[in-house]
Computed example of a mutant assay.
Amino acid sequence: MTLLGLGLMGYVLADTLLAAGHPTTVWNRSTGKGADLIGRGARRAASAGEAIAASSLVIVCITDNNAGRELVQPLAAELRGRTLINLTSGSSSEAGDISGWAAQHEIAYVDGAVLAAPDGIGTDEAAILYSGDRDAFDQHNSVLRKLGTPTFLGNDPGLAAPRDVAVLGMMWNILNAFLHAAALLQSASVSATALAPVLEGGIATTTGWLAGYAEQIDAGAFPGDDATIATHLAAMTQLIDESNARGVSTDLPRQIKAVADRAVAEGLGRSSYAAMISQFRSPE
């Protein structure tokens, strides 16, 4: 196997392949990284081209797809006849562009999205999504399973990227809500450590709503059986008032309330919270 890029994620990918017994060639722009991998049997290539020549399977995991294109496109001849798996984060359009370039040069291309932190790589909990060349995915599936639980989404190389950023978007929203909550409770002399288990319980409750709300979204029907948007809106106002009273920023809760205000103005006040998807389907 060849691994191009030894950043936080790339290093762990290479380390996991090496630990699983796969001969592994590595390359990184900064040659100082990965010395311990070399000590455990990995081969350091002097150039990206040399690294590619060493294996039929080439995995690239670097900063972004712009850097990825700059790296691999001059090496089309070296990559011809090989499989290129791109685990660099990027957009679906970028995946399509790289796939088109790869097809022109007889390179089997698979785009991927790692839905896991580096310390989860090599476990079943590490979900890794793939899309693109199905034959190439099937050929190397046994290797990919060493990195995590692989899921193939389809032949369109742009299928993995939207799921990646969707998960990241949810993560950032949860973390921002936690940070606002911690700031609010600290103003009442409650430590973030004491708050964390309370919020974990709240997140677990919210997670339990997702499947039902997903069914409502797919069906286009939003009965307000649990709590209506209007009910949530009243509580949002309370959050803003409490934040104001304690000298905590109201930026985040005001953004949340603004979305609910628009939904109510459109006549959705008696619908379930899931009906607010209407506010996210197109820009204002």
Score class of each variant (00 low, 15 high):
255 Q>Y: 11
234 A>V: 14
246 R>P: 04
272 S>D: 12
264 V>G: 04
275 A>W: 03
263 A>L: 04
261 D>Y: 01
264 V>L: 04
275 A>Q: 01
265 A>S: 13
246 R>D: 08
236 M>P: 02
243 S>T: 10
280 F>K: 12
235 A>N: 13
245 A>K: 13
248 V>S: 12
244 N>I: 01
253 P>T: 01
278 S>N: 14
246 R>N: 14
267 G>N: 04
260 A>D: 03
264 V>N: 05
268 L>K: 10
260 A>M: 09
237 T>Y: 11
260 A>R: 00
280 F>T: 12
274 A>N: 09
274 A>K: 09
236 M>H: 09
241 D>G: 10
256 I>Y: 12
259 V>K: 10
249 S>V: 00
276 M>L: 14
269 G>F: 05
248 V>F: 07
256 I>K: 06
234 A>Y: 10
263 A>M: 05
254 R>N: 13
257 K>N: 07
262 R>K: 11
267 G>P: 06
276 M>G: 04
274 A>G: 13
258 A>Q: 11
245 A>V: 01
248 V>G: 11
255 Q>L: 14
267 G>Q: 07
265 A>W: 07
240 I>S: 11
247 G>C: 06
262 R>H: 10
281 R>Y: 01
267 G>F: 08
252 L>F: 15
248 V>I: 11
251 D>H: 08
262 R>Q: 09
257 K>G: 03
255 Q>K: 09
253 P>C: 01
237 T>F: 06
266 E>S: 10
277 I>F: 13
272 S>N: 12
259 V>R: 10
261 D>T: 04
245 A>C: 05
275 A>R: 09
279 Q>T: 02
234 A>F: 08
246 R>V: 00
275 A>I: 00
257 K>F: 03
249 S>P: 02
262 R>P: 02
244 N>P: 00
279 Q>G: 03
234 A>L: 14
237 T>E: 15
263 A>N: 05
233 L>G: 03
248 V>P: 08
275 A>G: 06
243 S>N: 08
245 A>F: 02
264 V>T: 08
238 Q>Y: 13
273 Y>F: 15
256 I>H: 08
269 G>N: 02
269 G>T: 02
268 L>W: 05
277 I>N: 12
266 E>W: 00
257 K>T: 02
250 T>A: 03
275 A>L: 00
275 A>Y: 02
245 A>W: 03
239 L>M: 08
270 R>S: 14
262 R>V: 00
263 A>C: 11
273 Y>P: 01
271 S>H: 12
273 Y>K: 02
274 A>Q: 12
240 I>F: 10
244 N>H: 10
236 M>W: 09
251 D>M: 11
263 A>F: 06
247 G>Q: 06
244 N>C: 01
254 R>A: 15
269 G>L: 04
260 A>Y: 07
254 R>T: 15
237 T>H: 15
261 D>V: 04
233 L>N: 13
247 G>F: 08
263 A>W: 03
242 E>Y: 10
265 A>L: 03
239 L>Y: 05
239 L>T: 07
275 A>D: 00
254 R>Q: 15
251 D>K: 02
241 D>H: 12
253 P>H: 00
241 D>W: 05
233 L>P: 01
249 S>N: 03
249 S>I: 00
